[in-house]
Structures are given as C-alpha cells and as structure tokens.
C-alpha cells in the first residue's frame, strides 16, 4: 500500500468540483492514504452548520447529478474523516471573511489553519486543487 499523502485544496463552490474533491478525498482516505483537505474561498460556506448544500452546477454533468443518487459531497467528506481518518482544515482567512468561529462549523472539521501551516503539511504530498 502506498503511503503518498493526498492534499486537496478546495476553493470552488460548484457542485462538480465539490463532488469530485469529496470523491478523491474519501476514496484515497479509505484506501489507506493520508489525506489533508484545505477548505477555503467559496467551498467553506457549505461547511457552516445549517447552510444549504445545494451547490450550483457548472455544466451538464452537475445538472444531471442532481437527479441521480450520488452520495452528496458533505457525506463523502464526513466519511473520509470517519472511515478513513482524513483531516479537513477550514481556512482561517475564509473564516474571518465569513465572520464564523470554529463552533459555527461542522464538528468533523479540524482546527482553523492558515496557508503557512497547510503548505508545510502538504510539502511532501500530492496536491489536488478543485
């Protein structure tokens, strides 16, 4: 089994990108890979408690997915944590912009993290950006 670390930088709020990022993170995590996810920009609001997860589609696939029984991206991210021990870090800058604190975020997220710490953690891993 490979030990290569998978680092996901999630900045988009589009349904396709959120879904693909969640698929990569969850499958990598349950396959024994170390997975770090950095949630920033338009992706972070979906992880504020009580916020809608109805992400807008970019194109045809995103629209089609709405009517298919694909697991939703938040469930996949949560499973990445619960079944695969992935770590999801909310971007501290995006939290400041949204004016939210750690208690406002989903409980399976890790501690607020800045780019300096995330880049250091991601230094020896693959980086996937969505």
């Amino acid at each position: 089994m490979t030990s290569s670390k998978v680092c996901v930088v999630m900045v988009s709020g589009s349904r396709e990108r959120l879904q693909m990022a969640a698929m990569v993170a969850s499958v990598a995590a349950v396959s024994g890979r170390e997975v770090l996810v950095f949630l920033s920009m338009n992706a972070l609001p979906y992880f504020v408690k009580g916020m809608s997860t109805d992400a807008a589609a970019e194109g045809k696939l995103g629209s089609l997915m709405e009517h298919k029984n694909a697991p939703d991206f938040k469930t996949l991210f949560e499973q990445a944590v619960s079944l695969g021990e992935a770590k999801l870090y909310p971007c501290s800058m995006a939290m400041d912009v949204l004016a939210v604190g750690p208690d406002d975020l989903e409980p399976y997220l890790g501690e607020p993290t800045g780019l300096t710490r995330f880049l250091d953690a991601a230094r020896d891993g693959q980086v996937w950006t969505f």
Binding site: A70, P71, Q79
Partner: peptide, 17 residues
C-alpha cells in the same frame, strides 16, 4: 442499488467496520 460511485464502496466500508 441505485447509488452512484463511490456510494457502494463507502457503504461496503461502513458495513465492514
């Protein structure tokens, strides 16, 4: 049945636990 990738895999892993 009816679930799309990676739903069936994740359901299997949850059941394995």
């Amino acid at each position: 049945r009816g679930s799309f990738c990676p739903g069936p895999l994740m359901e299997l892993i949850a059941a394995l636990k």
